[in-house]
Simulated assay, not measured.
Amino acid sequence: MAINSIQFQKGLSMSEFIVRYGREGQCEAAFIQARWPNGFCCPRCQARTASQFRRGGLLTWQCGHCPHQTSLISGTMMEHSRLPFTKWFLAIYLITQSKTNIAALTLRRQLGISWRAAWLLKHKIMEAMRQREATKPLQGDVRIDDAYLGGELTGGRAGRGSDNKVPFVAALEVHNGKPMRVRFDPVKNFSFAALKPWASIALAPDCTVTSDGLLGFEVVERLGFAHRVVIAPKGKAGTEIEPFRWLNVVLGNLKTALSGTHHAFNFRKYAGRYLAESQYRFNRRFDLAA
């Protein structure tokens, strides 16, 4: 069997990570470079001259044009956090390098912090992933399907009407028959009204959409997208036909990763973050080291 070059890529080893980011000063310097690659820029007036000092150990700038003061972490997901940069960097490394998902309890053990701190840390990182992915529409050949996150509650409504199920649109960008990028977007339901804002954000203007004929997906035609309908047979055979095979593989991997990592979480409240975490990693799988 041929070796999958994506799965067998070198990535960034733990030992290499420690060499690069094992000390607080290294992480601080990397964060400064990432935030201001062309030098400090005042967030209030965009001036580039500033004096630099430390307040409570935190690097802070005072603009030379206006009196505004900006700490290194203000306006970022690290704002108000008391954790050192080394903990943040290690958490980001563990979450992004994992093939599946990593639970807050595991982060707690790996980082040596409280469960509450680990939970907040993970959710801040997932929210940053969600915001990052939200602005990147899919292009070209796009396959879409309706999907649900969560199972049925004992004694509750069954099927798609279950109170514990969160609907989301799974969309896959395909190049030459191979999956490239994916989007998992929670929606209120699969009506025209609910899918219209999704399509406007998730799909680039020139893409061609393939769906299984779900009535709500006709909204893509109303918005001017090219739309191809392929009616899939029922059962397992419907998941293996060419237009939807890769999409169903990706969905299967997503649900396996979530159920195998998390015993329970609030689907209604946090579905977008957990879906974005898997989406973020999938879309960057070609260069794990970065």
Rank of each mutant, 00 (worst) to 15 (best):
I241N: 03
S114V: 07
G25H: 12
G11A: 06
E79K: 13
L120H: 15
A199G: 04
Q52G: 04
L251V: 04
K10Y: 04
L214V: 06
T70P: 03
K87D: 03
R132H: 15
C27E: 01
L94A: 03
E152Q: 13
I231S: 12
T49E: 14
A271P: 03
G39S: 04
L83S: 09
L59N: 08
G11T: 10
V19N: 00
L215Q: 15
E218F: 12
R268T: 10
D287M: 02
E133R: 10
G235C: 05
R48M: 01
E277L: 11
G156W: 07
Q52R: 15
H123M: 11
G272R: 00
I92Q: 14
K87F: 01
S191D: 09
L153K: 13
C207W: 05
I6K: 01
E277P: 00
L121T: 09
G57S: 00
L215R: 15
R132L: 08
M78S: 05
V182G: 07
A202I: 01
L172T: 00
H65R: 12
T208S: 09
A226S: 14
W119D: 13
V219Y: 11
L12M: 13
R268E: 02
S98K: 14
C207S: 11
A193S: 13
L288G: 02
Q97K: 11
L203G: 08
T70V: 14
Q26S: 10
G75N: 11
F168G: 00
N283F: 01
H68V: 09
R109K: 14
E242L: 07
A257I: 02
A47E: 04
A202T: 13
T256M: 11
E240N: 08
P137V: 01
C42D: 06
V250D: 00
F8Y: 04
C207P: 01
K10R: 14
A118M: 12
K136C: 10
A289N: 04
A134F: 07
H65Q: 10
H263T: 14
V219W: 10
K122V: 10
R132G: 13
R116C: 07
V142R: 05
G25A: 12
R109V: 06
K255N: 07
G39I: 00
I125D: 07
N38D: 15
S211G: 12
L214W: 14
T49H: 09
D145E: 13
F89P: 03
L247K: 00
L138Y: 05
W36H: 04
E133M: 15
V169L: 05
A194R: 04
G11S: 09
R54L: 12
T60I: 06
A128I: 08
P205C: 05
T49W: 04
K234A: 10
R130Q: 14
